[in-house]
Design a protein around this nucleic acid. Structure first.
Length: 263
DNA sequence: AGAACCGCCTGCTTGC
DNA sequence: TGCAAGCAGGCGGTTC
C-alpha cells in the first residue's frame, strides 16, 4: 500500500528517468482512465509529490496527477507487450512507465500546475500551530485523525500504527485530550519513521514495489503493524489488533495505555 | 458543522 | 476439493 515513503521513493526514481524528456505516447488499457491526448509530445519539467499524489509537471502549466490508492504502482520497463494488470502506459525515448493496479482504484488526472503551498506535508511546510488550533481539538480517535488527509498528508494505515506505538500513545485516545507535548512527540516520531521508511525504499508487505519492480526493505523495521499476538518489542506484552473506521489498527496496551480520554 | 459510514475494486486467505 | 464469504484500505462522496 503506497503511503508517503513509497510515493516519495517513486518520485525520486521518476525524477532521474523522466525530467527533461518528452512523453512520446500514452496508451490506456482500462477505460476508467481518461486518454489525455494533450500530454503527447509534452516534456516533463519536474516531478513533485503532494501528500500521496505524484505530480508530473508538463509545460504549458499542466500537471499529471497520479494517485496510486491501494494497489497501484508504477513500473519502468522496455517491454512492448501489455503487462498483467497494466492500466495505462507512458512511452519515453528511453523506456515505458506502466501503471500496474489490480484493484483499479488508482486515479490519473490533469490539473493546472500549482505550487505545493496548500499541502500539509510533514516534510515541507507543516504548520504545527495551525494543526493544534484546527485539527487537534477534533472529537475523533487520534489514529483516525493521523490518517485524515485533510489533517496530515501522507500517513496511511501502516505508519499511523507505527507512529503511535513509538510515541507511546494509544490509538484509542480522543484527539482533543492530547496535550501539546504529546502532539509534538507524535510528529517527531512521524518524521523519524517516515524518513527511515524512505531510506529503506518503502514497506513491501504484499504488493509494493518500486519503479524498477524491486521490493522495499522497511517491512523489517515495523514493530506492531501486522504483528497481532506477537510480543511488543518494548514491553513484551501481546500486540493487539482492533478495528477503527473499518481499518485494522495494531497496538500494545502495555506501552500505549490510556489514562484518560478514550474515544 | 462535524463525525461516521459507504462504495469503489479484485486477489488472496479462511472456513465449511 | 470447491466454493463462498471475509478481508485488505485511500479517500471522495453521502448520510446521520
Amino acid at each position: 500500500m503506497p503511503e508517503l515513503p513509497e510515493v516519495e521513493t517513486l518520485c525520486r526514481q521518476l525524477r532521474l528517468r523522466t525530467v527533461g524528456d518528452k512523453i512520446l505516447a500514452a496508451r490506456v488499457f482500462d477505460d476508467k482512465i481518461n486518454d489525455f491526448k494533450e500530454i503527447r509530445q509534452r516534456p516533463v519539467t519536474a516531478i513533485r509529490r503532494r501528500g500521496k499524489t505524484i505530480l508530473l509537471d508538463l509545460d504549458r502549466g499542466r500537471s499529471l496527477a497520479i494517485h496510486l490508492r491501494m494497489t497501484g504502482r508504477l513500473l519502468w520497463h522496455n517491454s512492448r507487450a501489455k503487462l498483467p494488470h497494466s492500466r495505462w502506459r507512458l512511452r519515453f525515448a528511453t523506456g515505458n512507465i506502466d501503471l500496474i493496479d489490480p484493484r483499479r482504484f488508482a486515479t490519473v488526472k490533469i490539473e493546472e500546475t500549482v505550487c505545493c503551498q496548500d499541502t500539509l506535508d510533514l516534510f515541507s511546510n507543516f504548520d504545527m500551530s495551525a494543526f493544534l488550533a484546527k485539527q487537534a481539538p477534533r472529537k475523533v480517535c487520534v489514529k483516525i485523525l493521523l490518517m485524515d488527509p485533510q489533517a496530515v498528508a501522507g500517513i496511511g494505515n501502516i505508519y499511523a500504527s507505527e507512529i503511535l506505538h513509538r510515541a507511546g500513545i494509544s490509538p484509542l485516545r480522543l484527539s482533543s485530550t492530547l496535550g501539546k507535548k504529546e502532539w509534538k512527540n507524535i510528529f517527531r516520531f512521524a518524521r523519524l519513521i517516515l524518513k527511515k521508511a524512505i531510506e529503506k525504499r518503502g514497506t513491501s508487505i504484499s504488493d509494493w514495489r518500486d519503479l524498477d519492480g524491486l521490493p522495499g526493505e522497511n517491512q523489517h523495521e515495523l514493530r506492531v503493524y501486522g504483528k497481532e499476538g506477537q510480543n511488543c518489542p518494548n514491553c513484551g506484552l501481546f500486540i493487539q489488533k482492533i478495528k477503527q473506521g473499518g481499518r485494522s489498527t495494531y497496538f500494545c496496551a502495555g506501552c500505549q495505555g490510556i489514562s484518560r480520554g478514550r474515544c
